[in-house]
Design a protein around this nucleic acid. Structure first.
Length: 150
DNA sequence: GCCAACGTTGGC
DNA sequence: GCCAACGTTGGC
């Protein structure tokens, strides 16, 4: 079982949306590294921090869990979607997504507070210039954050 | 809105 | 295969 951190813009899908919908396909990832994590590494049962990005209060807002292995991301086939990809076909999809299910909503743990933690200085999320929307989290990082979160 | 940092594209 | 130009991310 592995741990992850997944960024989502709350105006697109927030932790409250996930709480309501119970499970969502993690659509819209258009970065190969993040796609490869979903395709090659993420397993059903893996846990992830749900991170709100590009918003007034960026930070960890809850916990979710992988509930389905990677499958083609439907939004790549939809010309009306901002995630449409003309080079993707049903026979040869370019973008995949896992499904995530709600585990719990937590307090909002702000990015600034994460940065203050000496134990988290090597966390991928916090590295200079890091923009990856899905990053692995070590068990030590996971446990440290959990303690501050709950 | 600004801008640093990163990723992708495409000409050569 | 290089690399300049461009587009995107995402905090502030």
């Amino acid at each position: 079982m592995a741990y992850w951190l997944m960024k989502s813009e709350p105006k697109e899908v927030s932790i409250d949306d996930l709480m309501t919908r119970k499970t969502v396909p993690w659509f819209g990832v258009r970065n190969y590294q993040a796609r490869n994590f979903m395709r090659d590494a993420m397993q059903v049962g893996d846990q992830a921090f749900f991170y709100h990005s590009s918003c007034a209060e960026p930070g960890i807002a809850g916990i979710c869990e992988v509930c389905a292995l990677a499958h083609p991301d439907e939004s790549q086939f939809d010309p009306a979607s901002p995630y449409f990809d003309a080079k993707a076909t049903r026979d040869n999809p370019r973008w995949l997504c896992v499904d995530m299910q709600f585990v719990r909503k937590t307090r909002l743990l702000p990015l600034a507070e994460l940065r203050q933690q000496a134990e988290l200085t090597s966390m991928l999320l916090l590295q200079r210039g890091s923009r990856l929307s899905i990053t692995p989290v070590t068990p030590a990082e996971w446990n440290h954050i959990l303690k501050r979160l709950l």
